[in-house]
Design a protein around this nucleic acid. Structure first.
Ligand SMILES: [Zn+2]
Ligand SMILES: [Zn+2]
Ligand SMILES: [Zn+2]
Ligand SMILES: [Zn+2]
Lengths: 141, 141
DNA sequence: AACATTTTGCAACATAGTTGCAATAGTGTA
DNA sequence: TACACTATTGCAACTATGTTGCAAAATGTT
């Protein structure tokens, strides 16, 4: 894991720092999307709030993580797949929010469908967020 | 307009107050979605910030307005159509955010498409937000 | 090891949203 | 219309969230 994280940072031409390693670790540890507060909990007292904000912004810029819009307007982040790079995200998958466990997942294999726009409107990006019960919660209740 | 607003409040069994009338007026005046700050600008010094928050929450509860999730996590509100009622919203239309004029619109006639979920996931609500250039901006540039 | 460049922590600030409570306004009834 | 009851509002204080400037510390390069 340590090596995987270092490689990812090098590939993105970012210097290897303790905070970046720890924050990336939190994403690899969890398989769901994380809010700023989740990461703050994970890293504990080790790093300043401001450092986390700036690191997340850096990761978004470099194509390492992407943000997820949610109906309740919390900011969530999740790892990108390899196809994303600095300045160019290609995360056109559906996001799923579980109403039971409250976790958010990238449905990597569910592509956002296109939709027919009214005359005059030109679409450049489409976000789709589905709420419901996730597979884990469905299996255990 | 005054009468239309009063009827809407009565139909929702809400008492008729100056702040509710003024805030509803702002929605009928604009044809796009509004953020809390927009409404604060519209009503000026007449009402407290807290009153606006509480009034918007009441309107959402009563099925008069609905919230719109946005990629940049701003909270937006827009008028519902008649089919919404207290506790039951049916705003299953696509929302459009213009990258140029920065306004957000309800595309009332564009229904959110269904999408096939992976095994184990049960969808109960789907939000779709499209970004691009709106018809007004396309016509004037 | 020494240097130049990034990154971090701190403090201070800005904005957004919430809560409790007393004062006020609205509604229904006499 | 006046009264009493209830709902709404304003204020103050508070929490949460996010940003900025700058000096100190860490990183990468020679
Ligand atoms: Zn991405
Ligand atoms: Zn995703
Ligand atoms: Zn509605
Ligand atoms: Zn809408």
């Amino acid at each position: 894991m340590e090596q995987k994280i270092i490689d990812l940072l090098k590939r993105s031409s970012l210097s290897i720092t303790d905070s970046r390693k720890k924050i990336l670790e939190s994403f690899f540890q969890e398989n769901s999307a994380l809010a700023h507060a989740d990461i703050e909990d994970y890293v504990g007292e080790d790093f300043d709030r401001v450092t986390i904000y700036r690191t997340l912004q850096t990761f978004v810029d470099k194509g390492i993580i992407h943000t997820i819009p949610t109906p309740d307007n919390a900011v969530l982040y999740a790892l990108c797949k390899d196809s994303c790079s600095a300045g160019h995200h290609h995360d056109n998958h559906v996001h799923f929010i579980c109403d039971n466990c409250n976790k958010t997942f990238c449905l990597e294999h569910v592509v956002v469908p296109t939709v027919h726009m009214p005359v005059g409107f030109a679409a450049s990006q489409i976000d789709m967020v589905v709420s419901g019960i996730c597979n884990y919660c469905n299996a255990t209740t």
